[in-house]
């Protein structure tokens, strides 16, 4: 690395600290999982991570996480929009409410959601006659993952929207654009990088979520069993190598997806520089 003169001091110290810190907190624990799973050998590893019950759990975990993050991207944008653009009674309260899913123990959230969305619960009650079961189905998992991911998009979009210059909207209007054109062509492209960041965070959080999901999912093998639950099950059976093998496969897929989202976000930001 070239040493360049800079007015900002301490490059080598801060970089050294960052690398040590990341190694202790992230890299070493993660490589330990890789090492442990390696004890299975390639064939053993492959057999574990491609078992039918495991494959079904991947589909559910990543599918529900993507669905939840997508719902959050749309409605999180709406919540952020309302919090930034309008003044109404109790706005501060609503604003504080957004962060609650962060503060609540996820098990509590899971039990509450399972109770309310069960076919006799306050909300599930209205869906049951329509033949829609929420609790103990994949739909329930999506509800739980949407709940825990809510703050991410709101909190990433909010500051960008606050900084958004209303003159741009006025400029678009004076050039003849209607509201929907202004939103699609002027506002949305500006917010897109922030929305993608929020989406990626909500997705990453949802993939790893355990506590809230196991209470509402019903955990039926092949139907509503998430991968993190399979990992815990293997741990309970003292199958440590099998558990780490699943963890490694999840890590690789998640990393790939996050990398893709980051790339997409980079691309949307590049277009303006």
């Amino acid at each position: 690395m070239l040493k360049r003169h800079s007015v900002l001091p301490g490059f080598s110290i801060t970089l050294g600290f960052t690398l040590t810190y990341l190694s202790l907190i992230v890299l070493i624990p993660l490589s330990a999982t890789f090492l442990k799973s390696a004890t299975l050998g390639w064939d053993g590893f492959w057999a574990v991570v491609t078992a039918p019950r495991v494959l079904a759990s991947y589909k559910l975990t990543f599918g529900a996480a993507l669905t939840g993050a997508t719902i959050n991207a749309v409605f999180g944008l709406l919540v952020a929009w309302i919090l930034v653009r309008y003044d109404f009674f109790g706005k501060k309260l609503v604003d504080a409410l957004v962060d609650l899913p962060f503060a609540l123990p996820t098990a509590v959230a899971g039990i509450a959601l399972a109770t309310i969305y069960s076919s006799k619960g306050w909300i599930g009650l209205f869906f049951a006659p329509l033949g829609i079961k929420i609790a103990h189905t994949p739909l329930g998992i999506v509800v739980a993952l949407t709940f825990i991911g809510l703050p991410f998009v709101v909190r990433t979009v909010q500051p960008v929207l606050e900084a958004f210059d209303t003159e741009l909207e006025e400029a678009a209007a004076s050039l003849g654009a209607n509201r929907s054109q202004t939103f699609r062509k002027v506002i949305l492209p500006t917010l897109l990088p922030a929305i993608l960041t929020g989406f990626a965070l909500a997705f990453a959080r949802a993939v790893g979520e355990y506590g809230s999901v196991i209470f509402i999912a019903g955990n039926i093998p092949m139907v509503s069993e998430i991968t993190p639950l399979l990992i815990v099950t293997k741990l309970e059976q003292y199958d440590y190598a099998g558990a780490t093998a699943l963890a490694v496969s999840m890590l690789v897929v998640s990393f790939g997806l996050l990398l893709a989202i980051n790339g997409l976000q980079r691309w949307t930001e590049m277009r303006r520089a």
């Binding site: 741009l168 006025e170 400029a171 209007a173 004076s174 209607n178 303006r272």
Partner: peptide, 20 residues
């Protein structure tokens, strides 16, 4: 009459160009 129907060109002090 709404601004978009007035056929006015408006130039802002800070340009208000679309950055993307």
């Amino acid at each position: 009459r709404h601004v978009r129907d007035r056929q006015v060109g408006f130039v802002f002090q800070h340009y208000a160009l679309f950055r993307h």
